[in-house]
Design a protein around this nucleic acid. Structure first.
Length: 683
RNA sequence: GGCGGCGUAGCUCAGCCGGUUAGAGCAGUGGAAUCAUAAUCCACGUGUCCGGGGUUCGAAUCCCUGCGCCGCUACCA
C-alpha cells in the first residue's frame, strides 16, 4: 500500500445543458464532499476539484433549439449549477469549466504530447457533410426517417421514438439539422486512441487496485473481457477544443477526451488562484498523490479505462487510487426522468427546505452498492425521528439542563463511575470508527456510527437521571452534565462532514467562536471543555417537519407518473412534411398472421408467417416484449408491403408490421375497425 | 442473447475473502422515566438468508443451475 502524502478528489463534471437533481447529488457530489470535509478535519493535504463540462453536441443542439449561442447555454448552467452546489455545501476548492482558456490549452497539450509520441492512429471514414455550411455533421446533427419505425425526426445516433441506436448513414432521406439540406457523403479523417493496444497495460494496472467496489470492478472487467476497441478522439464540430494540428481545421477534441482533462485544468486554475502556478503538478504528477474520482455508474468506463489509458499513454500523470462509483437513485419507486420533469431539482428544493436534512437522508440512503430509492415520507421520518428526536433533542436537553441548573456554564467533572467511563470511551472511539468508514467510502455506515453516538448519549443521560441527582447528589449531577456537554462538543465536530450547516450552529451553541470546520478530527476524543466555560445561545438545531410540507412534492410526482396523464414531451414543431407522392410510394396492406415463433437469442424478435390474399410471406418484427407468438396467430395486422427485404439475425424479412409505441415501450398493433379480407390495400 | 450488479425480518438495508444461537434502523406491542423539539430509554422477531443441486466437519457467505429485478449491450424491416 502506497503511503500517500496528499489527496486529490474529483466529482464528475456535470454537463452544462441542464440543472442538477438529487440523483446527481447523491451519486457523485455528496459522498465526495463528506469525504473531503472529513479529510480536511484530519488535517490532510486535500484538494477537491469539480467544474462544468461544456462541450459536446447536446449543448450545440440545445443552443440551436433556443436560438442562442452554445456559450450562452453553458454560461447559464455553469452559473446556476455552481450556485446550487454552493447552497448544498459542496466545498469544492475550485469549480472550473471546460470552456476556459486554461482548459483548452491543457487539453491541446495533452493531445499534442500523445500525438508526438505516436500514440494515435489516423483513420479516414465516410461521413455526412453539409455543403451549405461547409461542415461535417455530427451524428446528432443528422435527422431523417428512422429505418426501423419510420419516425421522421430520428437523429443520426438514435431514434427517440423507437429507441433504436443508429448510425447517420442508415437514416432514410437524411437532412442536415442545421440547414435542412440533403447532406453528402464525404471522406473525413480522425485520430483514434488504440485502446486495444493499451488493454494489457490497463489490465495490469486494474489488477493492482485494491478496495474497489464490486459494481465498479465488475463493470471494468466486463469491458476488458469484451476487448477494447479503438476510439476516435476527434470530431468534426466547431464547438469544443480545437485539434492542435495544422491539417485539422474544423475538428475538435471529442468531449469524452477533453472532459476528464477538465480535472487537470481546473486544478491548474486553482493553483493560479493560489498564486503558485506550478502547484497543480504536486497533485497530478506525483505518485504519492491519492487520486479519487467520485462518479455515477454511467461514467465507470471513462474513469476506469479511457482516462487512465490516456494518462498512461502520456506517462506523467498519477492514476486513480479508487473510483467509488455509485449506482442510481430512484425517486418514489421510479426512475428519474429529466425530460418528464420527474426529479427533485436542487434549485427547487433549496427554496423550500433545509439543506442538512437532505444531506443526511441522501447519505443514509445513498446507492452505494445497488440502486436505492428516495421516498419523501422516509426523508420526513429520518428528519423527525433521527435528526430532531435523537441528535437535536440530545443537544437541546443537555443545553437546556445546563442553562437551568448551571447557569449556562460547564459544571465540574468529579469522580466518574462505570457509566461515565463507558460514555467517555464511546466518545473517545467515535472519531476513529466513523473515520475508518469514511476512508473506505462507506458513508451510510459512517452515518449510522455517528448517530449511534447520539443514541448512546441519550441512554447515558437517561441512566444517570441528572434531574434526580441534581438535588440529591449535586456533584454527580455536575459530572453527568459535564460529560453530556463533552458529548455535544464532540458531536458538533463529528457532524461537520455530513451536516456542515448544523455543525456551525451546534459549535456556536457550545460557546465557541472558532470555526468548527477548522477543528481537528483527531482532537475529538480528548477535546477539553474547561469547567466554568460559558455556553452559547441555544436554538433548535433540527425543526420537525409536518406531512403537509411534503405532500405537494409527492402529489406532483404522482401526477407525472400517472399513466397517460403526463404532457407529451414537446416534439419539435418542424416535422418534415411529405408530399402525397411520397405517401403513395408506401404500400400498406392488411395481412393475417398464420404462424408466429420467437427468434432464438433475441429478446424482442418474432418471426411471422403472414398471408395477404393469395400471397404468403415471412416477416420479422420486434414485438416479442409485448406480444406472445400464440396471441398473434390469426390476428389481422397492417403491413408495409413494398419495403425492401432484409435479413435480421439471419432471417429473411419481407415487410414490416405497424404498431404504436408508448413511453414505456409497450406496443399496440394497428388493427381494423371492422373485418376486412387480408390482402386489402390501405389508402 | 452477451456481460455486470442485485435478490436476507412488514419496510429500508447491513453481513457475503465459510465457523459461536443471522443483525441494524423504521414501523408494531408492552413497560420505565418526565431534564428535553409529546422528545428519551428498556423488553419483545417460529425470517424456506429467491428455488434446486454440489464442495466442506460446517454455507446467507464458495461452485453449478433455474427464476426474478436493475443496468450496459445487440437484434426491434
Amino acid at each position: 500500500m502506497t503511503e500517500y502524502k496528499r489527496i486529490l478528489v474529483t466529482s464528475a463534471l456535470p454537463y452544462a445543458n441542464g440543472p442538477i437533481h438529487l440523483g446527481h447529488l447523491a451519486g457523485a457530489y455528496l459522498p465526495a464532499d463528506i469525504y473531503v470535509r472529513y479529510q480536511r478535519l484530519k488535517k490532510r493535504d486535500v484538494v477537491y476539484i469539480c467544474g462544468s463540462d461544456e462541450h459536446g453536441v447536446p449543448i450545440t443542439i440545445a443552443a440551436e433549439k433556443k436560438g442562442v449561442s452554445p456559450q450562452e447555454i453553458v454560461d447559464e448552467f455553469h452559473t446556476r449549477n455552481k450556485a446550487a452546489f454552493a447552497k448544498f455545501g459542496m466545498s469544492f476548492d475550485y469549480y472550473g469549466r471546460t470552456s476556459s482558456p486554461v482548459h483548452h490549452r491543457t487539453s491541446q497539450e495533452i493531445f499534442t504530447a500523445l500525438h508526438d509520441k505516436g500514440v494515435f492512429i489516423r483513420k479516414s471514414e465516410q461521413q455526412l457533410y453539409d455543403a451549405k455550411v461547409k461542415m461535417f455533421l455530427p451524428d446528432r446533427y443528422v435527422k431523417g426517417e428512422c429505418p426501423h419505425c419510420g419516425f421522421g425526426e430520428a437523429y443520426g445516433d438514435q431514434c427517440e421514438k423507437c429507441g433504436s441506436s443508429l448510425s447517420p448513414t442508415e437514416l432514410l432521406n437524411p437532412i442536415s439539422a442545421l440547414t435542412g439540406e440533403k447532406p453528402q457523403l464525404r471522406e473525413t479523417e480522425h485520430w483514434y486512441i488504440p485502446l486495444g493496444k493499451l488493454q494489457k497495460q490497463v489490465e495490469e494496472w486494474i489488477a493492482t487496485r485494491q478496495g474497489w467496489k464490486a459494481n465498479v470492478i465488475g463493470q471494468v472487467k466486463s469491458w476488458l473481457k469484451d476487448g477494447l476497441a479503438d476510439r476516435a478522439v476527434t470530431r468534426d464540430l466547431n464547438w469544443g477544443v480545437a485539434v492542435p494540428l495544422p491539417d485539422a481545421e474544423g475538428k475538435v477534441l471529442y468531449v469524452w477526451f477533453d472532459a476528464p482533462i477538465g480535472y487537470i485544468s481546473a486544478t491548474k486554475e486553482w493553483a493560479l488562484q493560489k498564486g503558485d502556478a506550478d502547484l497543480w503538478k504536486k497533485y497530478w504528477q506525483n505518485d504519492d498523490t491519492k487520486l479519487v474520482h467520485f462518479i455515477g455508474k454511467d461514467n465507470i468506463v471513462f474513469h476506469c479505462i479511457m482516462f487512465p489509458a490516456m494518462l498512461m499513454a502520456h506517462g506523467n500523470y498519477v492514476l486513480p487510487d479508487n473510483v467509488p462509483a455509485n449506482e442510481f437513485l430512484n425517486l418514489e419507486g421510479n426512475k428519474l426522468s429529466t425530460s418528464k420533469n420527474y426529479a427533485v431539482w436542487l434549485e427547487d428544493y433549496a427554496g423550500k427546505f433545509e439543506i442538512d436534512p437532505l444531506r443526511y437522508y441522501l447519505a443514509a440512503t445513498a446507492p452505494e452498492s445497488k440502486d436505492s430509492d428516495f421516498v419523501w415520507q422516509e426523508y420526513l421520518t429520518r428528519n423527525n425521528s433521527e435528526l430532531a428526536d435523537i441528535l437535536g433533542n440530545f443537544i437541546n436537553r443537555t443545553l437546556a439542563f445546563a442553562n437551568k441548573q448551571f447557569a449556562d456554564k460547564v459544571p465540574v467533572r468529579g469522580d466518574v463511575d462505570a457509566l461515565d467511563r463507558d460514555m467517555l470511551e464511546t466518545i473517545a472511539q467515535a472519531a476513529d470508527k466513523i473515520g475508518a468508514a469514511i476512508e473506505t467510502y462507506e458513508f451510510r455506515k459512517a452515518l449510522t456510527l455517528f448517530m449511534n453516538v447520539a443514541r448512546a448519549a441519550n441512554k447515558y443521560f437517561n441512566d444517570q437521571e441528572p434531574w434526580k441527582t441534581v438535588s440529591e447528589k449535586p456533584a454527580k449531577c455536575a459530572t453527568t452534565l459535564n460529560i453530556c456537554l463533552h458529548a455535544c462538543n464532540a458531536l458538533a465536530v463529528l457532524m461537520a462532514p455530513f451536516l456542515p450547516f448544523s455543525a456551525v450552529k451546534a459549535w456556536a451553541m457550545m460557546g465557541h467562536e472558532t470555526d468548527v470546520h477548522k477543528q481537528a478530527w483527531d482532537d475529538v476524543s480528548h477535546m477539553e471543555l474547561q469547567a466554568g466555560y460559558k455556553l452559547g445561545r441555544t436554538e433548535i438545531l433540527f425543526r420537525k417537519m409536518e406531512e403537509k410540507e411534503i405532500e405537494p412534492e409527492i402529489a406532483r410526482l404522482k401526477t407525472i407518473q400517472a399513466p397517460g396523464s403526463q404532457p407529451p414531451v414537446a416534439e419539435a414543431a418542424t416535422e418534415t412534411k411529405i408530399s402525397l407522392e411520397d405517401l403513395a410510394r408506401v404500400q400498406l396492406r392488411v395481412a393475417t398472421v398464420v404462424a408466429a415463433e420467437k427468434v432464438e437469442k433475441a429478446d424482442k424478435l418474432l418471426k411471422l408467417d403472414i398471408k395477404m390474399g393469395a400471397e404468403q410471406r415471412q416477416i420479422v418484427a420486434g414485438i416479442a416484449l409485448t406480444y406472445s407468438p400464440e396471441a398473434l396467430i390469426g390476428k389481422k395486422i397492417i403491413v408495409v408491403a413494398n419495403l425492401q427485404p432484409a435479413k435480421i439475425r439471419g432471417i429473411e424479412s419481407n415487410g414490416m408490421l405497424l404498431a404504436a409505441q408508448d413511453d414505456q415501450g409497450n406496443l399496440s398493433l394497428l388493427g381494423l375497425d371492422r373485418d376486412v379480407n387480408d390482402g386489402a390495400p390501405i389508402r
